[in-house]
Design a protein around this nucleic acid. Structure first.
Lengths: 339, 339
DNA sequence: ATGAAAGCGCTAACAT
DNA sequence: ATGTTAGCGCTTTCAT
């Protein structure tokens, strides 16, 4: 490994000034044809690569974006990352991944990275901001786009799905199958996303004139075992449900496993609908009927929004809503007429 | 957002030279106590953050590492990333994620990023290197660590599991349950990892004096539907197996679903063992008996190896082997004695 | 169309 | 213990 070639080396080798080499290689200024080719050739021969630190220092941009999630270990975010990444790459940006683990300190660290020049912009998928005084104001004009979960009153552009509408559709599907005793296992309830999904459930029930009995809306935390526990709880009620709309797939898996343990068959005895359409939802038994989110498209859109912000052009939309799709699979069935 | 404070501004405000400020803030040189505190205070007041481009340009390091996988969408890599990330952070490094999608061109791009100064080192989890002439030689001395899959003859340090030993143990478990007709659904076979797992299967069979009949080693590609297809194929053989060792969980899910479709019960009629211990393997029905890899620990170890390389100290081990664990769950059962 | 020169913000010799 | 100075590699005025 010889020492790295610098722009000066190319200049010397071709017999021009460093400035000309820079112009030729960045394609910005005009360089005459005989010189241009010779410079490009020399660069290739010498295996030249521009030093990003030097370039970034000079141009005051890093050509990187930061995507911050609350848990890198969650496969859900990966498809979003894919969408972000491909769009970013196409525009010449690298993507850095950040992981907050729900720790506000770490969120702040990532905002700091933005200010450090580590990245030119950020895509936040964390559902909340650090509760520092004046934090929301301080970041209002930072190049940040929020994905997946709204952040109350942050004023930042965000790309979302219609959680309430999608939930309503899911519950309407159950109602259409003849179910009347439909329960909802909710997500962690102070969070906007969980509330929206529960709103959708309530709305569908109300529209159909169906009651939501006491105990039909247990609150969970999106984790497998909680799905099991809350499902058991539902079936200890005097009038257990015949169908459950669960706020995410992971808890839905738990619920289905618990039903099986209780000797109930899904979908014959109980119908279950999830939300997310995880990688394995169709491999599950029974294949899960669930709300599918266009994850890659959400990532793509978020990155497009960020590029729009970068461009400095006006008219960045504050909210972009992406369509969802209710995937009808094997975990839902008509209510037997004699039930 | 006022304009960003620079080191010069702090120097002016405190009444010292920029060099002193730098020394105080980096903690490197000794700065006397009255000055030190005043500088720190001023930095905090002015909300100072060092410009990374400038620092990197000067120090010739980026304090970032690159973790490159072949598919960010695969949840399997996430736990590894977690291990890498926490270790990297503790050492002051940021982690960049790269995604090759099995495209050699993109792999080369990431190697280029290393040379660009984008990152100081790289953790590769791709199982192969671009087949450029002389590529292996060119990178031999680069700060690169390979994780999870060996790269034949790359000479790079790598952290692995004992694929052969773990597979052997898995098959021995089936043998111990009384199974004799044991098949193996393999991974893509030119790849080392698949070969090792198959070797482990063969070794266990041979040690037990069991035959591997024609057609008992179909070759797959780690995908769900392939698991289904190859499983069906196995049961079209004159003597179908009573147990299957599948090279990864995803194909194992497919196999189990296919068995159910064929009216066979797992584990009553057929036992199935997987490899990976995915997030949902214990939520699956039946819960999958499988080989668990210490993913976070693998990531952590890989990063530690990279830090060792950075340190310039000798004695970087070429291979580190991490322990696996066979998780006994519900997809395996003793062979009925009258079978 | 090309060159000369300055400077992005920081750190590290070298001096004192 | 602190200041002076130079320079990391690049891009970009400003000349010509």
């Amino acid at each position: 490994m010889t020492t790295r070639a610098k722009i000066k080396d190319i200049a010397a080798s071709v017999g021009v000034s460093p400035a000309t080499v820079s112009r030729a290689l960045t394609g910005t200024g005009l360089v005459a044809e005989p010189t241009l080719s010779r410079i490009r050739e020399a660069a290739r021969d010498m295996n030249y690569r521009p030093n990003v630190s030097a370039r970034n220092l000079r141009t005051q941009r890093s050509m990187s974006v930061l995507m911050v999630v609350r848990d890198v270990g969650n496969p859900f975010y990966l498809e979003i990352l894919k969408g972000v990444e491909s769009t970013a790459r196409a525009a010449g940006y690298a993507v850095l991944m950040g992981n907050t683990e729900n720790n506000p300190e770490r969120e702040i660290e990532y905002f700091d990275m933005l200010r450090d020049g580590h990245a030119d912009g950020m895509i936040l998928i964390t559902g909340k901001l650090p509760k520092r005084d004046g934090f929301a104001e301080r970041i209002r004009n930072l190049p940040v786009v929020v994905a997946l979960e709204a952040i109350n009153g942050s004023g930042l552009p965000h790309v979302m799905i219609d959680n309430e509408g999608a939930s309503r559709e899911a519950v309407q599907h159950l109602i259409g199958l003849g179910h009347r005793r439909i329960a909802h296992i909710a997500g962690p309830v102070p969070e906007i996303m969980s509330l929206r999904r529960r709103d959708g459930y309530r709305r569908a029930m109300e529209d159909a004139g169906l009651p939501v009995p006491e105990g039909y809306e247990p609150v969970g935390d999106y984790l497998l075992h909680t799905g099991e526990r809350l499902c058991r709880q539902l079936f200890e009620l005097p009038e257990p449900p015949t169908a459950i709309f669960v706020a995410n797939d992971e808890m839905a898996f738990g619920a289905i496993n618990e039903l099986r343990r209780m000797g109930l068959d899904v979908p014959r005895d109980v119908s279950v609908v999830g939300f997310d359409d995880l990688f394995l939802s169709q491999a599950f038994h029974p294949p899960l009927t669930t709300v599918s989110q266009p994850r890659a498209a959400i990532g793509q859109k978020a990155m497009e929004l960020l590029l729009h912000v970068f461009s400095g052009e006006p008219g960045v939309p504050e909210t972009v809503e992406m369509p969802t799709e209710l995937k009808l699979r094997g975990s839902t069935a008509p209510l037997p007429t004699n039930s």
